[in-house]
Design a binder for these strands. Structure first.
Lengths: 282, 282
DNA sequence: AGGAAAATGGAATATAAGTTCCATCACGAT
DNA sequence: ATCGTGATGGAACTTATATTCCATTTTCCT
């Protein structure tokens, strides 16, 4: 059996990469060839099979196993896992930024760790909004809300701050809104006033408050156009809705911020205001 | 054999995603369950094996194959390939990513410009929080709030969503809160109950709502410790306050999001909860 | 040049993976 | 209530994958 390393092989891709580069010229010919291939086509290592990779790298399958063992892994699969980790859970864009965040985090007070953790989660979430929200949807939502005489805002529990914000934001922009979910408790009666010439905006995340779902049903039944913000295509709000947005807030220690949702809400408010200005008064 | 589709199944991830979402509610129970899992954990589909995925998705291995076939693929492996493509050949280096981001930005609809603009503003604001907030301040604020019998939350207008969020967040963490600023209009009387063994948290930004300023004066006069979140050292809230945080939300076209404030609020909530847990009950 | 040690290619093997099949179950129509 | 269709769970089967083994070649030292 080939010699194994005394200490355990790297689990992080970057370390592994460094190790391969460092060892490269001490390795025998075929193994060096594999080393070069792994550095050049890391994605292929992550997804390929021993057979397919060996073919493309022009070596024998057994050579790949040897290579992994020479690096201290128990077999090729173990080495492959490291290459896969690199591609996993990568929230597309801000990886580098987040990584530097992680480095800062360690060694701080628990309070500061919370700040860093939530910042990281918030930035990720916002990034995702940018990627996922379709311009057409935003335009359509803005059109609906801009055309409404009154906008009914529906949001309970965690979603309530969002509707409260929109209540404020749309209010300052001269758009009449009615906020459901406040402690008044007469929401149903208020929502009964909504008609086809109004519009409603509902916000709800898992676990969806039954009341919110019920309200949206009522709204739809009254032929009032509905725009929703929710966290999954399978959310009850995503059905029967004129337009809906998917927002996935990353969590930190099981707790979620509202940063991304607030960002979308702000954009929506501005878009509505612009539509109103452009489309003339109604 | 199960029915196959007439036209070929999607090779691009986004199309596949849309297809799954569209078909979701027409699928039988177990297949719908798989559908939800694939949307929620696409990375797992890309890297897992039929065995491991079926275990985590709580279905039989055969169900995964059925799911793939129901979508028109020849088998699970073919569907998996689409999930892998999504992760392959993604540019790693930071600059390239940012560049592609910029390219997306320009030439989009005004609606999308709003999303991009607010996202940028929000991320910048959050990063500033990270830099500016002092760990000692956060610790001290958490200590004050954790020691309080009741936490009084003061926030009007744009700040109201923040206190509403804290009302919810602290509530779920088992901390008694009273929310001022809601439409009830009896805030002053409610705040009169606050004493030295309680604490208050006030949030206010320019232009500072006179009512908020007045409330904080009242609170301080009653010897209730006060934590503030505001946007300038010269804010009326920064004076006479036990601890205060400076949050500057970047604006986009004169409009401000609450992303950074929400992030700080979340961190504060967690920090308080941890202090409570660590420090025993009072 | 001769020999030992290491490296290599390729076949053999054991393991794991994906797929198929069938008995059973749930549900809707008659 | 009964029948029939479709869905489901789980075992059986087939394929392919990673790993091991060994004969052969290469390398390097004396």
């Amino acid at each position: 059996m080939t010699e194994a390393l005394t200490d355990s092989p790297p689990q992080a891709f970057n370390e592994l990469r460094d190790l391969i580069i460092e060892r490269r010229d001490k390795l025998p010919r075929r193994l060096a060839q594999v080393a070069a291939y792994t550095i050049e086509f890391p994605d292929d290592i992550a997804f390929g099979t021993v057979g397919s990779i060996s073919e493309r790298a022009a070596v024998q399958p057994s050579t790949l196993v040897r290579f992994a063992k020479a690096l201290g892994y128990s077999g090729f699969s173990e080495l492959q896992a490291v290459f896969q980790e690199r591609l996993r859970d990568r929230p597309n864009n801000y990886e580098a930024r987040l990584q530097s965040l992680d480095e800062h985090t360690s060694g701080h007070s628990p309070a500061m760790a919370a700040i860093e953790g939530f910042s990281e989660a918030a930035i990720r979430s916002i990034e995702r909004v940018k990627e996922r929200v379709k311009p057409e949807d935003l335009d359509e939502a803005a059109r609906i809300l801009a055309a409404a005489e009154t906008v009914y805002l529906i949001g309970l529990r965690r979603s309530y701050p969002v509707t409260a914000y929109l209540h404020y934001a749309l209010g300052t922009l001269g758009i009449r809104t009615v906020l459901a979910g406040s402690p008044s408790g007469v929401d149903r009666e208020i929502l009964a006033f909504a008609g086809p010439r109004d519009a409603a905006l509902a916000v709800s995340f898992t676990p969806y408050a039954p009341t919110t779902v019920e309200y949206t049903r009522q709204i739809v039944a009254q032929n009032t156009p509905l725009v929703s913000i929710t966290d999954s295509p399978f959310s009850p709000l995503a059905l029967n809705t004129s337009v809906w947005f998917e927002i996935v807030e990353s969590d930190f220690e099981g707790f979620r911020t509202l940063a991304a949702t607030m960002t979308l809400a702000a954009a929506l408010a501005i878009a509505v205001a612009e539509k109103r200005r452009a489309g003339g008064r109604r």
